[in-house]
C-alpha cells in the first residue's frame, strides 16, 4: 500500500504522473489455485505467455528464441487460462506429462 499523500503532495487534476504504478499492486493474493510449471514437458510454444491476462508468465530470450521461465506469483490470479491453452496440458494428459498443472493454493506454504 502506497502511503497516503496529503493534497499538497499530489499531482493536480487526478493525474497519475508516473506510468505502470500498478505493478506495485499484488494481485497474487487473489489466487485459489496455482499453475505449477513442469519445464520438462514444455515445448515453449508461448501460448501461456500470450494468453495470461495478468502477464504473470515469465519468459526469457535464449539464442534469439523465447523460452518459458515460470510463473510470477506476485501477480498470478490463478485463472487457469494458461493451462487451458497449453497444448501440453489438456485434461486427457496424465498430470506428470503436463507442462502446467493447476493445484489448490492450500497445498503451498508461502
Amino acid at each position: 500500500m502506497a502511503d497516503l499523500k496529503g493534497w499538497k503532495e499530489l499531482a493536480i487534476g487526478g493525474v497519475i504522473d508516473k506510468p505502470s504504478t500498478a505493478k506495485e499492486y499484488q494481485t497474487g493474493t487473489w489466487r485459489v489455485i496455482r499453475p505449477v510449471y513442469k519445464p520438462e514437458n514444455c515445448i515453449n510454444c508461448m501460448f501461456c505467455w500470450l494468453y495470461c491476462p495478468d502477464q504473470a508468465v515469465e519468459i526469457e530470450v535464449v539464442d534469439g528464441k523465447p523460452k518459458m521461465k515460470g510463473f510470477n506469483y506476485y501477480y498470478c490470479k490463478g485463472c487457469g487460462l494458461c493451462a487451458n491453452v497449453c497444448p501440453k496440458s489438456n485434461d486427457k494428459l496424465p498430470e506428470e506429462k503436463r507442462a502446467i498443472v493447476m493445484k489448490p493454493e492450500t497445498e503451498f506454504q508461502d
Binding site: 500498478a22 505493478k23 494481485t27 491476462p53
Partner: peptide
C-alpha cells in the same frame, strides 16, 4: 501492465 484488477481470466 500487471497489477490491474480485472477478474481472473
Amino acid at each position: 501492465t500487471q497489477g490491474h484488477r480485472l477478474c481472473p481470466g
